[in-house]
Structures are given as C-alpha cells and as structure tokens.
C-alpha cells in the first residue's frame, strides 16, 4: 500500500525547560493510502497532539512528519496553510462550520480558497452533499441542522478539496448513536468506494469497531498497532 503519512522519531514536549511532558514520545509510524484508521487511547495519551502534528497544526519538538514525501514540520506558516488547503481535510469534534454560511457555501468554501471555478465548485459541492445525504439541505444554515447533519456537512467540506487524507478529531463525540452510526456509514462508504483515507482520534467504541486499523497510544507512545483486516 502506498504510504501517505510517515512520522520519524516524533516528539512533542511541553515545558521542555521545567518539568517536561512528552505528549508525543518518539512515535515512528506510517499510514497508507485508503486506510480507515482509529488512533485510540485514554485522555492525555497524545491522540489529538499526534493528529495535530500530522495535520501540520502543531510543530514537533523533534523528529519529522512527511506527507507524500513533503516534510510538513519544516514548512513556513503560509506554506503550511496552503499545504493543508490542498492536501488535508479536517473534521473537528463540533461547531466547525461557519455559522453564517449555508451547507452549500460551507462545503464550497475550501474550493473557493483553492480558487476553483464556479461550475466545478457547484458540481462537486452538490455531489458531496448528495453523498452525505444532505442534497436537500444545501441552503440550510448550521443552526438549522442537527449535530449529525452538521458533521456530515463537515465531512463533505473536508472532501471538497480532494485531500490526500482526512483527519477527524473525535468526530462522533457530540453525536447520539443514530447520528454517529449514520456518519460512520458515510465515511466508511467514502473510504470503500472513493478510497478516501481517514484517520480518527477517538474514544468512541463505535468508531473503533468500524476501523480497519487501530493504533493505541499511551503516554505519547504507540503501545499497540492492530490491523483488523489482516487479523
């Protein structure tokens, strides 16, 4: 399987000069194209920090993160933002839509930043909203959508830029079981049919059960890496 993400001896240390806390502690791991992977572990184990480092939202204390051969840990601020725009899709825990834009506009926002043409934008956005089952809600503002629907729009937005992979930080944390199940169905379908790579950080057993690969962190270290497809 083609490697998309690769980390080498990755450290993220807080308070390095006083009482050092290693949120990510010497993590070397790779993720391949088309994976549907859950990063799990107790609170404070470093799941979100690892995701932030992979997504270029945080800078490692040492070590490197490569995405498709590009070392994102050494990119300058604007280059990094542009890199994220073109390569990474994000789904956050909640409240991650722009409240004054409709579902259609929120989904197309990333493509607008990418300067995609209006026709291309409109076509892709409607396709994506159809895929996440919200074709009829294109004109709705976030406050008019349920939590599950908002997360589905967030998934559509994350995919709009045709990213290398999608990072989802606890995407089901604020959803009831039906909404969570619907969201996972959609993401699984996109992974299966469109080969979209998903990387989740999660506590949620429902996500863990659906993931093909589960990476377990504890005290910033990878203590288990289980590929369920291979058994």
């Amino acid at each position: 399987m083609e490697t998309v993400i690769s980390t080498k001896n990755l450290f993220r240390t807080y308070n390095p000069d006083t009482i050092p806390v290693h949120a990510v502690n010497d993590v070397s791991i790779t993720f391949g194209r088309g994976e549907f992977t859950a990063i799990v572990g107790p609170s404070g184990s470093g799941k979100t920090t690892l995701l932030n480092l992979i997504g270029g939202l945080d800078t490692p204390t040492s070590g490197s993160v490569e995405v498709n051969g590009t070392d994102v840990s050494h990119l300058k601020a604007n280059k990094l933002i542009d890199f994220r725009l073109h390569n990474i899709g994000f789904v956050f825990q909640s409240y991650n839509l722009i409240p004054v834009l409709t579902a259609f506009e929120n989904t197309g926002f990333i493509m607008l930043l990418q300067k995609a043409s209006k026709e291309e934008r409109e076509k892709r956005v409607m396709d994506l909203l159809e895929q996440v089952g919200l074709g009829d809600k294109a004109g709705s503002r976030p406050r008019e959508l349920s939590g599950g629907q908002q997360q589905r729009v967030a998934v559509a937005r994350a995919l709009a830029s045709r990213p290398q992979f999608v990072l989802a930080d606890e995407p089901t944390a604020n959803l009831d079981s039906v909404a969570a199940s619907n969201l996972l169905d959609i993401m699984e379908k996109l992974n299966r049919e469109e080969h979209v790579t998903f990387l989740f950080s999660t506590h949620d057993q429902r996500v863990i059960d659906r993931a093909y690969r589960v990476v377990t962190l504890e005290d910033g270290k990878v203590i288990r890496d289980e590929n369920k497809r291979n058994g």
Binding site: I81, L85, H86, Q114, R157
Partner: peptide
C-alpha cells in the same frame, strides 16, 4: 483556528 486549520490564510 478552524479557518486557518482548513487552509485560510491569516
């Protein structure tokens, strides 16, 4: 934070 994360320049 969300906007910069998804690729909007500051």
């Amino acid at each position: 934070g969300m906007l910069t994360a998804v690729g909007m320049r500051k």
